[in-house]
Design a protein around this nucleic acid. Structure first.
Length: 239
DNA sequence: CTCCCGTCCA
DNA sequence: TGGACAGGAG
């Protein structure tokens, strides 16, 4: 037997074709409807990128957008953040939620970076050793700061992939592996940041968790979710 | 698996 | 009023 049957490192040809089509659609959609955030602006320092990624964890991007500029202005560097008073940090973070653990994480992260001479690690292993930096945040820093080809598989992209390609695997482990495979397939075609941000924005604005806008979605003809869940008389299920 | 947590929207 | 949010840690 072929080893590809037991070790599916290679996605099926049809999957590759659909992923390529999806890429084109997302990039096209992003040019006209993508979101603009201060932390996406070119020229941002690694510090500003890292802080944004911590703030964005399990928090709405719209909320972070409101607090971001003020936070950077008040704490403009790793050094200032490392020396911050915990109470001040907490009150700055309070409107975003998760303020207690995030204040600790940010200050400890700043102190760790300062001990390294002020530079953000450029390897996944080093990044994930730091408090508050897991697989996703490490990928984001590698992609945005160091220009590496990494998939930003957050809840938005996961939902989009899940719906577009259809349910994958029975176990959570298998599903996770397939999602990462699809995500890396998307990103490997080039334009890493554009495709990542387009998938995130599309998942947040069109392929929403609550009320997906399937009727006006340009992917509906090829989307598993739209083709199976939509009925002529009703939009996407409300639940 | 649970907790962290304020905000937003159906 | 409750689920969901650019996750991560215990």
């Amino acid at each position: 037997m072929e080893r590809t049957e037991t070790i599916p490192y290679e996605p099926a040809p049809e999957t590759v074709a659909r992923a390529t089509w999806l890429r084109g659609q997302l990039l096209s959609w992003f040019r006209s409807s993508g979101r603009s955030f201060p932390w996406r602006d070119p020229g941002r320092r690694p510090y500003e990128i890292a802080v944004a990624e911590i703030l964005l964890q399990k928090t709405t991007a719209a909320g972070v957008a409101r607090a971001y500029s003020g936070f950077i202005k008040r704490y403009p560097s790793w050094a200032s953040l490392a020396l911050a008073r915990l109470e001040d940090l907490e009150s700055e973070l309070r409107p975003l939620g998760l303020w207690r653990q995030r204040a600790l994480v940010l200050r400890q992260l700043a102190q760790s970076i300062e001990e390294r001479g002020g530079d953000v690690p450029c390897s996944r292993a080093e990044l994930e050793r730091l408090r508050g930096i897991g697989p996703y945040t490490a990928s984001a820093i590698l992609a945005i700061v160091y220009g590496r080809t990494e998939a930003l598989l957050d809840v938005n992209m996961a939902r989009l992939l899940d719906r577009f390609f259809g349910p994958i695997g029975s176990s959570g482990k298998e599903r996770s592996r397939s999602l990462h495979q699809l995500a890396s397939l998307l990103v490997k075609g080039g334009h890493c940041l554009q495709i990542n941000w387009s998938a995130l924005d599309f998942g947040a604005l069109v392929c929403k968790a609550r009320r997906p806008r399937c009727q006006e979605c340009q992917l509906k003809a090829e989307c598993w979710y739209a083709r199976t869940q939509i009925t002529p008389t009703s939009d996407a299920p409300s639940g």
